[in-house]
Design a protein around this nucleic acid. Structure first.
Lengths: 335, 335
DNA sequence: TGCCATCGTCGATGCGCTTCGACAGCCTTC
DNA sequence: GAAGGCTGTCGAAGCGCATCGACGATGGCA
């Protein structure tokens, strides 16, 4: 292993000088800098992460807690993780992966072992048991999602309330008078996942203000569940012409079931989906969507984390405005 | 921060004794052990990871290199990651996530900074440029996938050759005389991803030995591509009755396109898919599959890594036997 | 020419832990 | 009853780095 001493010797300077060249925390003459940098390159020197962590109390590692259940959107999680790790690397940090399954204890462990400099937590529930503990930790924490009482924690998420409203507004403006929301599986609601509730609020509020009939129903992602869900919704209102789908997993089943029923999209029924843009085109009819900006959320989460690490101590809550992209699955209802 | 000294003082012993209690590397009297363990619990002591890494040259971190492209199977990657992190935690290790995008340099960095104790690399290509570098590293490395020249690296993967054969064998046994393989997108072949080629070999070999007509075609996962692909295959052989799909992403499009053409599954055409079991039921007709055992591969990869870390130096190549589960998408062809 | 401020570099120290050799007490064994 | 072997514990050294105070050299200014 090549150490800072080797570099120092090779460059004919003191180890501390090498350290200062690397960190830039003291001014160095151009000549010395060049000398040192050359030795570093020639020897292939990489500072020992453990030693560095010990001496500086910084690990340059961000911990990310992800949900690993498969009943929620795997593609979104992946997209988020991908963007987070890329953003972290851009800031010279690495990403440590933790699972939600390990519970609050894992967060304690990571914090008190000084394994990571900060925590990013996905899939936050309205009354998440991890929140009190996270507040007690003296690490920077950024939540992806917004709990009921963030109390001092930074949060970033899509503005699901606005997203719910945007979907209804779009349909209302096309002339629809009756719309239904197909939501996440009942388990998601039961868990108190806050985005589901927030979306529903926005949906209901916009329905009221646009004077549109609105119903909603959670839906698991099996073919039977989807079919039963459509039965219910159409029975409740045979004049239903607009569907808002806040559950990417049911889309294939939903579209195929609609066709079975002889309902064409968008001629007979319009569909707005909440899902990643990348998913919109992978259907027989390109879907009008409100995008889930997983990539942007990931990047923002990392950016907020870096700000906290840089000393910016005031917590912020960032809600990203929804972006509705009109494609081929929505149209004016037939008179 | 609570250190080993605090624990030692509280327990009335030397710091080294505390260390030995934790590591179990020397015998400790029951009395002392109890004393120390109580102090640890009372103080909430967690060893400082950096200090530990510095002193022992062990980080208890495994690095996992994942592909973050979305043109390949996101669900499989996630499942693999989930199982790897879980298995790693079971061995008291954490998982650091790296992306393939960072290239070989990232591997160098992780190795020479002593950030992780071992590397696990997914999505290995037949002539992967990272392989020579990985061999040069003196870290334990486990590849998920098998390159042409593993030369001293451990590998684990589904036996795709056997999987390809199994699919054909199943169809042949049902009485099909003409089958086609719908493969991964052309980009995957272009990249030289070895599992695609191996699967094809198995497919062809079994077709020959079962005396079955066989064609194959790569296919991107857009609706147009799928449609064009079916056009080609059916034009080439109108008597085609069996489809092997080695590309989960096209399944929804494929099934819906078949229905459009008036081809019923399995009455008119049988379909065997290679995909995770969890995906088999999420289609209008439950799919006969050869499972991609992402979870088992992940667990095995971690286990192999731990063996290397424990001193087992001989590299091994483990190919997991394919498991075909018959569901509703395959049947005997109509006479 | 002499003094002081500034810049660039150096040594020393300590971060928290593991590990090695040392050693005190005890039990055997002839 | 003395010699030797264990067992359990301790103290010290050092892992590789960041950081702080010190200090020599250089330049500016009077």
């Amino acid at each position: 292993m090549v150490t800072i001493n080797d570099v120092a010797t090779a460059a004919g300077v003191a180890p501390s000088t090498v350290s200062y060249v690397i960190s830039g925390k003291r001014s160095i003459s151009p000549k010395t800098r060049r000398l040192v940098e050359e030795s570093i390159r020639k020897l292939g020197y990489h500072p020992h992460a453990g030693a560095r962590a010990l001496a500086s109390s910084k690990t340059n590692v961000l911990a990310l807690v992800v949900p690993l259940r498969t009943d929620l959107n795997v593609a979104v999680v992946m997209e988020f993780v991908a963007s987070a790790v890329t953003a972290a690397r851009a800031h010279d940090h690495d990403l440590l992966l933790l699972t939600k399954d390990e519970g609050p204890a894992a967060l304690q462990r990571v914090a008190s072992s000084a394994i990571a400099d900060a925590l990013m937590v996905m899939d936050v529930e309205a009354a998440d048991p991890r929140v009190p503990m996270l507040i007690a930790l003296d690490l920077p924490v950024v939540l992806i999602g917004v709990p009921d009482h963030p109390a001092g924690l930074s949060c970033v998420d899509l503005d699901f309330t606005a997203a719910g409203s945007a979907c209804v507004a779009h349909l209302a403006e096309l002339g629809h008078r009756s719309v239904a929301l197909i939501g996440p599986s009942p388990a998601v609601y039961r868990r108190g996942t806050s985005y589901a509730t927030r979306f529903l609020h926005g949906f209901d509020a916009a329905a009221k203000s646009h004077d549109v009939r609105a119903t909603n129903r959670p839906c698991a992602h099996s073919y039977e569940a989807v079919s039963a869900c459509l039965d219910d919704l159409l029975a409740a209102d045979p004049d239903l012409t607009g569907l808002v789908v806040h559950n990417e997993a049911v889309l294939p089943a939903l579209l195929s079931d609609l066709r079975h029923r002889g309902l064409r999209v968008p001629e007979d029924i319009s569909v707005v989906a909440v899902c990643p843009d990348s998913m919109a085109e992978h259907h027989p009819v390109a879907l009008t969507t409100v995008a889930i900006p997983a990539e942007e959320v990931g990047a923002q989460a990392v950016e907020m984390t870096m700000r906290r690490l840089a000393g910016h101590t005031t917590p912020e809550v960032r809600l990203l405005g929804p972006r509705l992209t009109r494609r081929d699955s929505t149209a004016a209802p037939r008179a």
